[in-house]
Design a protein around this nucleic acid. Structure first.
Length: 493
DNA sequence: ATGTGC
């Protein structure tokens, strides 16, 4: 069970060591690189990284308008076009937008909620909680939610995001303040999405999906608090405090939006805009073009769908806690700490060489991590820096981090999770879902799933060491550890 | 990730 299978061992010889956790590949490495690439990792992590990451991050460095460096975070692994863990900022006037730099699951992200219950109060109701969550938060490929709305109403949801949910009784006003973009990114335009995307998405609000998407009951143990002051500011005030964390995205809707525009970009990229790329998976269009702007407006619909999805899931979590404990949800805390995306491209102002610049920052499997003082943060987090939620594998635990001022080096981006070391196929060969469920129960994690083969794919050893990943981000100065959360219950797709 | 694969 402890055996770790590594996809391939990367060669470290071409890298320039910038620091213990930053490795640079110069722009001379490959024809067409406009900027150097930088990989954030400890030596151990970079040796485990597969060669595909090196190839992909240096491909990204060739894209028109890229500034600074093409980055890969410590949890990086091979992805579609861009590595997962990739960060690339493009000049808003001269650069491109690329669906491969955002991910098919637009606004895949994390939400963290804290109860005011200690594990001692929850332990004997844990199975009941997980069983009911399993019923109320549908998981798996093609799953549909309990929310019944028309396709026309869905078009309003994708323009209004989590605000639509709160307005319709699915959440509290305070949830919006504690969501990136206040739960609704401006500029979403439902006239830019296809009917097919709407048809796939309108029944999927309030659902988890599959793969590494999950909903967990977690515990914060006192020995796992690294920054007591920030932990308190984020709402961790009790020993063995119980939390709920979930990870999901825009489901079939975001996938369809990405597919639609990928096809359009492949048609116009070379013929209309003369852009040549090394890998067709890097399909892109000038950000400042009709196609680029349309994709940006459509992609924002998927961003909002995902915020709405997680908002309704939070509502279900509150309903279930209320049912199980027979109390009003507000009596049990159930305050949202934060909701943050890790698959987006966002227009942001950053200082580059001392000058303010408008940049389109692609973060694909990378989390925005704004430091203290950032204007985009709500007053409650203006002085602490942004809460950053990093989901680990279902066996090993997750982290709450905070953004820091020195995060400017990566345009305020950090890791998003553990990152796979084993392909799904390898993991299925090595683990058996039912046995894994029993093993996990033996270690105090009650897990429910719709797919045992899917469960096997998510086994802890199929992922990098989360402690090593977040440790690298802290050493590099792109985020700071606040607390580690241990899973005790898990709903998996 | 995804009504799972060009």
């Amino acid at each position: 069970m402890n055996e770790r299978e590594v996809i391939r061992v990367a060669s470290v010889r071409d890298f320039k060591k910038v620091s213990d956790t930053v490795w640079e590949i110069p722009s001379s490495y490959k024809d067409g690189m406009r900027v150097p690439a930088r990989i954030y990792a400890t030596e151990r992590l970079i040796r485990e990284m597969d060669d595909g990451v090196i190839d992909q991050v240096t491909n990204v460095a060739t894209l028109p308008g890229i500034v600074g460096h093409a980055f890969c975070m410590p949890d990086g692994h091979w992805g579609y076009g861009f590595p997962i863990g990739g960060v690339a900022a493009m000049d808003a006037r001269s650069g491109v937008i690329s669906p491969g730099g955002i991910g098919f699951d637009v606004n895949c992200g994390m939400r963290l909620v804290l109860t005011n219950l200690s594990f001692g109060e929850v332990r004997e109701r844990l199975r009941d909680l997980v069983d009911r969550l399993f019923e109320r938060v549908p998981a798996g490929v093609g799953s549909t939610g309990l929310l019944k709305i028309s396709q026309d109403e869905f078009r309003r949801v994708v323009e209004e995001g989590a605000r639509w949910c709160v307005r319709n009784g699915y959440g509290w006003d305070e949830d919006l303040e504690r969501t990136e973009e206040f739960g609704c990114i401006s500029g979403a335009d439902a006239s830019k999405i296809s009917n097919k995307a709407v048809e796939r998405g309108y029944k999927q609000i309030g659902t988890l999906g599959s793969g590494n998407h999950y909903l967990e009951i977690q515990v914060v143990k006192p020995e796992n608090i690294f920054d007591p002051q920030l932990a308190r500011a984020f709402g961790i005030t009790l020993p063995e405090q119980v939390a709920v964390m979930f990870h999901c995205g825009s489901r079939g809707f975001g996938h369809q939006v990405a597919t639609d525009y990928l096809q359009l970009f492949l048609k116009v990229m070379e013929k209309k805009y003369g852009i040549r790329i090394l890998d067709r998976e890097l399909a892109c269009a000038p950000f400042n073009s009709p196609e680029g702007r349309d994709y940006f407006a459509a992609m924002k619909c998927a961003v909002n769908m995902s915020f709405a999805n997680r908002q309704v899931i939070l509502h279900r979590v509150r309903e279930v806690f209320s049912d199980v404990f027979g109390r009003d949800p507000a009596e049990m805390g159930l305050h949202q700490v934060y909701d943050v995306a890790h698959n987006t491209a966002k227009l942001e102002e950053h200082i580059l060489d001392g000058q303010p610049r408008q940049l389109l920052v692609h973060r694909k499997g990378a989390t925005r991590a704004f430091g203290p003082g950032a204007h985009a943060l709500p007053p409650v987090y203006r002085n602490t820096g942004q809460p950053v939620i990093v989901g680990g594998s279902m066996e090993t635990g997750s982290y709450l981090l905070a953004g820091v001022e020195t995060g400017s080096q990566t345009f305020f981006s950090t890791a998003h999770g553990s990152g796979r070391t084993m392909s799904r196929k390898q993991a299925k060969r090595m683990f058996q879902g039912k046995q894994l469920q029993r093993d996990m129960e033996g270690r105090g994690i009650y897990v429910r799933t719709v797919s045992f083969s899917g469960l096997a794919e998510e086994a802890g050893p199929a992922y990098k060491d989360i402690d090593e990943v977040v440790g690298a981000t802290e050493l590099a100065g792109i985020s700071r550890r606040v607390a580690r959360l241990i899973p005790v219950g898990n709903v998996k797709g």
